[in-house]
C-alpha cells in the first residue's frame, strides 16, 4: 500500500522530525501525522485529543491516543519524555497559551507549533477596510470563531522566547507553498520549531 500524501503543513512538520524518535502530537485529530511518521520514519509516540470521534478515528489508524483536554496541561507526561512535541493548528483556539508552551518545553527537547498567521496581508487588508478578517486559514465569522488567541509570527516569536524557548527554524506557507519573501505579510500559515534555551526566562 502506498502512503497517502500528507496534508502540506503536516508534511513540513514531518520533514523536521528525525527517524526513530519519540513524538507527542497535541490535538492529533485523526492521527494522520503520527500514522504517517510511524509507517515512514519508524517514529513512536502518542496523540492527545479531546474529541471522541477523532480518538476513534486515530485508533482505527493504529495510533496510540490519549483522550484529554490540553487546557489542563500535560501532567500525564514526564519531563523530557519526548524528542518532539507538536501542536498543529490548535494553539489559536486554546485558553491557556503560556501553560501549554511551558508544558511543551518541559516534556520535549524540541517543540513544533503551527498556527494561522494573523499578519497575512489579506487579514490586514480586511481590517483596514473595517472588517474582521475571514480567510482560508481563518475561515470563521467573528461571532462563531473558536479562535480566541490569534497572533502573527512575530508575536509568537516574542512569547516563545519569553517562555524560555529559542526558535531554530520558522517557515510560512501559503496554499501549501513556502513563502520566502516578506513571510509575515505574504504567508497565511506559520510553522515554528523551537528548542529549550539555556537560560530560563520565567
Amino acid at each position: 500500500m502506498t502512503a497517502p500524501a500528507l496534508r502540506p503543513d503536516l508534511a513540513r512538520i514531518a520533514n523536521w522530525i528525525a527517524p526513530g524518535t519519540h513524538v507527542l502530537d497535541l490535538g492529533c485529530g485523526d492521527g494522520e501525522l503520527l500514522a504517517w511518521l510511524g509507517r515512514q520514519k519508524q517514529v513512536s509516540g502518542y496523540g492527545v485529543e479531546i474529541d471522541m470521534d477523532s480518538v476513534i478515528a486515530a485508533t482505527a489508524r493504529g495510533v496510540s491516543v490519549i483522550h484529554r483536554d490540553l487546557e489542563g496541561g500535560l501532567a500525564d507526561f514526564g519531563d523530557n519524555s519526548f524528542d518532539y512535541v507538536v501542536l498543529s493548528l490548535t494553539i489559536q483556539s486554546m485558553k491557556h497559551i503560556e501553560l501549554i508552551l511551558d508544558e511543551m518545553l518541559r516534556v520535549a527537547h524540541t517543540g513544533i507549533v503551527t498556527f494561522p498567521n494573523f499578519g497575512y496581508w489579506e487579514n490586514r487588508w480586511q481590517l483596514a477596510q473595517g472588517r474582521m478578517p475571514v480567510s482560508e486559514t481563518i475561515p470563521y465569522q467573528w461571532y462563531n470563531t473558536p479562535n480566541i488567541h490569534l497572533c502573527t509570527i512575530n508575536d509568537f516569536a516574542d512569547l516563545i522566547t519569553q517562555r524560555g524557548g529559542q526558535i531554530s527554524t520558522q517557515m510560512v506557507l501559503h496554499k501549501g507553498e513556502r513563502i520566502e519573501f516578506l513571510p509575515n505579510l505574504r504567508g497565511s500559515l506559520a510553522l515554528v520549531r523551537f528548542e529549550r534555551s539555556g537560560r530560563n526566562a520565567k
Binding site: 519519540h22 502518542y46 480518538v55 486515530a58 496510540s64 491516543v65 490519549i66 483522550h67
Partner: peptide, 9 residues
C-alpha cells in the same frame, strides 16, 4: 506512559 508502553485511553 511512564513505562513508555503503547496505550490508548
Amino acid at each position: 506512559l511512564a513505562a513508555k508502553k503503547h496505550v490508548t485511553y
